[in-house]
Amino acid sequence: MNILRKFRWAFFVFVAPSFLIYTYLVIFPIVSSMAYSLTKWNAISPAVFVGLNNYEALFKSKDFAIVMTNTWIGLGLALVIQVGFGLLISFLLYQTKAGYRAFRAMAFLPVVLAPAAVALMFVLIFNSDIGPVNKILESIGLSGLKRNWLSDKDIVFYTVLSPMIYQFIGLYVIVLLAGMQSIPPEILESSAIDGAGSFRTFTMIIVPMIWDIIFICVTLITAGSFKAFEHSYLMTWGGPGVRSAFLGVYMYLRTFIDANFGLGCAIGMVILFISLAVTMIFRAVVRRLDYQS
């Protein structure tokens, strides 16, 4: 607004405090992370420049390979299950009047909780002695399927993954539902008059019309799975070994348990790079979809 532009000092009063705090504590640390990732450093003695050694060590390490495999499998399962259930439940909610608010409220409930709290709930549920999972298996005569969910190295990864997937389905239900509700009702009415059943309406009209929203969900799930920390760390400390660790946990373990701050920064940079790359790809895709329609 022109009338405000004469107050030249306004920037210093309104913006400068936030600008300084934000630059010093959010932007500047990225640059120093990048610099530290090129050093060998324990955060006490001075950092020694080692070039790309940390990255080389990282890509050669067996643990990193396990952690990356975990991350990719986790991402794949999260995409299929969260988007799948998200679409199913939101489509059912979309058609529902009676009880709509109650169902919606329950679906979203886990999203508002601390991931730490949900992780602890699942620790109790998967307890091998008295947790309900084993008890239910026992009572329906499937004792053979009972497991030490939190320590068996072959399944512990899936145990840790389950609360991560469970907790955020509701977020995607609500986001996708909002997308569906923004479709003009005339389009759906005309398809109903044409005699399309709800399955056809769903696949032929609704899904194509909310592609951009589905892509938003895909990006969120992807970015989330590369910085995932709480569930894995609280349930199993990433173990045994790094069997149930994701990148975020791996970084914490190397940095604060092994005091290898240089390597930790390198892992942080990998997380940053992948997250930004995914966001860029997502934007490009959405822009292309926009041009087409």
């Binding site: 936030s18 500047f28 640390p29 920064c265 892992i267 942080g268 997380i271 997250s275």
Partner: peptide
């Protein structure tokens, strides 16, 4: 300026965790 401030939303905490720890220390 807007873009500069908004960029923070995209930054995963792990990318700034260690320098923040060192700075506060």
């Amino acid at each position: 300026l807007f873009t500069y401030f908004i960029a923070g939303i995209l930054i995963p905490v792990q990318a700034i965790l260690i320098p923040l720890f060192v700075t506060t220390r």
